[in-house]
Amino acid sequence: MKETRLMMGMPITLEIVDASAAKEAFTAVFDYFQYVDETFSTYKDTSEIMQINRHELALENASEDMQTIFALAEQTRQDTYGYFDIRHNGTIDPSGIVKGWAIYNAAELLHRWGYQNFYVEAGGDIEAVGKNDQGQDWRVGIRNPFNLHEIVKVLSVSNCGVATSGSYIRGQHIYNPKNESAPIQDVVSITVIGPNIYEADRFATAAFAMGGDGIRFIESLRGFEGYQIDAQGIATLTSGFHKVVCSD
């Protein structure tokens, strides 16, 4: 069974391969994402995070989940040399860590209910568990940052998280009038594969903020692989990345 809903400003997909897949599981997962949105969305005036941003609510009086997220964000800030930081221009926006954490928790719910073959995907970040409906590891495609209809790499993965951080900074017909032949040296996309989506997402967010150094940061972490694409369409791979590439 598979279902996609637009929530939190993005498509969220759940597929359960197990024959016992029940409608209640889908309802529970999407209800959970709804709760996450209502608590952590910086676009909802009534959310708990916005109450905190308006100083109407102190962190010490906030919900357990909010305090957890703040603690995780601080830990991640330390783990990433400060490149991950939920404080932007005087506002607190934890979305860079909430998404991976929420997907991880949705998967945890499914684990507890006994499911063994499923994936949860939100806005291109994925927790993939067990096998697909062909009995194989999950086939994950990395989108071409220059052409959203194309895939540039196919991964074969199971029981891990895949997160991509990036942007679309160059399109066709754009010329730099100051220097038309100058390449734009910039990273447009980094995909991180890690032991779970919470870890992959927080490090992908930080790695993207590091620019060209991001892939080296991922290389320095045991248990993580990465695929970084620059504005010229050149990809840099961590040394173990070939292990997660589909070889069919």
Partner: peptide, 20 residues
């Protein structure tokens, strides 16, 4: 660290990861 030019793939996939 190795590098490569990205290339379109046409394999069957289940899920897409991308900065959409």
């Amino acid at each position: 660290l190795t590098q490569e030019a990205i290339q379109a793939q046409s394999a069957y996939i289940n899920i897409i990861s991308g900065a959409t």
